[in-house]
Simulated assay, not measured.
Amino acid sequence: MPEITGYHAHVYFDADTQETAQQVCEDAARLFPVQMGRMHARNVGPHPRWSCQLGFAADAFARVMPWLMLNRQGLTIFTHPETGDHLADHRDRAIWMGEVLQLDLSIFDQA
């Protein structure tokens, strides 16, 4: 079984919800051992919407995820483990909060 070394939670937003997403991400980074990434006002990687990444260690999962569930302000959040198998982590091992969106998995080597 692969080892989970951490998690990425991607908070999705658009022009109308960017301030809300920034506040959610900043609050998470202030309250928990979470590394907040940049606010991408464009689609990045496999993500079908603008997003901000929250990175956290595996041992923070039980604290961060319930907080995101209760404080996501209606935003869609896509969370996946980090095991080194990027395709499986994004395709098979993910947790969605809110709308389930189609990722662009073609960026991952599927050979």
Rank of each mutant, 00 (worst) to 15 (best):
A60Y: 03
L87N: 08
L75N: 06
T76E: 15
F56E: 02
R63G: 03
M65L: 15
R93E: 00
L54F: 14
L87E: 04
T20Y: 07
Y12H: 09
Q23K: 15
R30P: 00
D14G: 13
A21V: 09
Q18V: 15
Q102M: 08
H8T: 05
S51C: 14
L103K: 11
F78W: 11
L31V: 07
F56W: 06
G6P: 00
A111S: 15
L87S: 09
R91F: 10
Q23L: 13
A58E: 13
I77H: 00
C25A: 14
V100M: 14
I4F: 13
L31Y: 11
W50D: 04
Q23V: 10
T5G: 12
Q22S: 12
A111V: 05
R91L: 08
A21N: 02
V64G: 00
F32M: 03
Q73V: 05
Q73P: 00
N71S: 09
I95G: 03
L101C: 08
V34K: 06
A60I: 01
A60N: 04
P66Q: 09
D92F: 11
A29D: 01
G98F: 04
R49H: 08
L103N: 14
R38W: 08
Q53F: 03
Q22D: 12
R93V: 00
F13R: 07
N43L: 13
H90R: 05
L68A: 02
G37L: 02
G74H: 04
E19T: 14
F78S: 01
M36S: 14
A15L: 01
H8K: 04
H86R: 08
W96D: 03
W67M: 04
E99A: 14
A28L: 11
H80I: 12
A60L: 02
D59S: 07
P48G: 00
D104R: 11
